[in-house]
C-alpha cells in the first residue's frame, strides 16, 4: 500500500492508478458526507463525482497544511453547495417551501437506523438541510454559513432552528427516539 504522499504525487502526474487509490481511500467517507447534503443517493453520487473531479483538478493547490482528509471534505461540501445552487437556478424558484417530501426506497444498508436518520435529513428542504449539516455536523458558524450561501446571518439561524425542529418532530413521529437516544427528546 502506497503512502498518501505517494498517491498524491501520482495524482499530480495524472496517473489513473493513483487516482483510483485515492478514490478507494476516501470514497466511502465522502459518500457519507454527500448523502447528508444531497436530497437522494443519485444526487449524492453526482456530488461525489463532482467532488473528486475537483479534487484531482485542484490537487496542486493542496499545500500540506492541515489534514488532507479535511481538505477533501471541504471540497465535497463545496460541491454539495454548488449542486444546491444549480438546482435552485434550474428550477427558477426557491425550493425552500415547495420541495416535495421525497423518500425513495434506497439500497439496503446493514445499519438501518442510521440509514433512516439519513433519510430524515434528506427529507429536509434543501436550504435547511445544508444549514443544518454545516452548523451541526461540520461546525461552521452562522456567519460563515451566511457568507457561503449568500444569505443573512438571521436566515441561517432561522433555517437551522426550523431544520432542528423538523428533525425532532420527524424522529418523534416515526418513533425513532428510542433508537437514537432516550435522553435527547424527553
Amino acid at each position: 500500500m502506497e503512502s498518501i504522499d505517494d498517491i498524491i504525487k501520482g495524482c499530480l502526474k495524472n496517473r489513473r492508478k493513483a487516482q483510483k487509490q485515492l478514490y478507494d481511500l476516501f470514497s466511502a467517507k465522502m459518500y457519507g458526507i454527500c448523502m447528508r447534503y444531497a436530497k437522494n443517493h443519485h444526487d449524492a453520487q453526482d456530488i461525489l463525482q463532482d467532488g473528486f473531479i475537483n479534487v484531482f483538478a485542484n490537487l496542486q493547490n493542496y499545500k500540506n497544511k492541515g489534514s488532507f482528509e479535511g481538505w477533501i471534505r471541504r471540497i465535497m461540501i463545496n460541491a454539495a453547495i454548488q449542486k444546491y445552487r444549480e438546482k435552485i437556478s434550474n428550477l427558477g424558484v426557491n425550493t425552500l417551501d415547495n420541495e416535495l417530501d421525497y423518500n425513495e426506497q434506497t439500497v439496503e444498508y446493514d445499519k438501518l437506523e442510521l440509514n433512516e436518520l439519513i433519510e430524515i435529513i434528506q427529507s429536509l428542504p434543501s436550504q435547511y438541510r445544508i444549514v443544518f449539516n454545516m452548523f451541526a455536523i461540520e461546525g461552521y458558524s452562522h456567519k460563515e454559513i451566511s457568507e457561503t450561501l449568500k444569505i443573512s446571518d438571521n436566515t441561517s439561524r432561522t433555517n437551522y432552528s426550523r431544520a432542528r425542529n423538523i428533525l425532532r418532530n420527524k424522529l418523534k413521529s416515526e418513533k425513532k427516539v428510542s433508537k437514537l437516544s432516550n435522553v435527547v427528546l424527553k
Binding site: R36, V107, K111, L117, I137, R164, L180, S181, V183, V184
Partner: peptide
C-alpha cells in the same frame, strides 16, 4: 446533546 448525538452517529456513516 441532540446535535452531539446526531453528529456522533453520522461520523461513523461511511456507506
Amino acid at each position: 446533546n441532540f446535535e452531539n448525538i446526531i453528529k456522533k452517529k453520522l461520523e461513523g456513516y461511511q456507506p
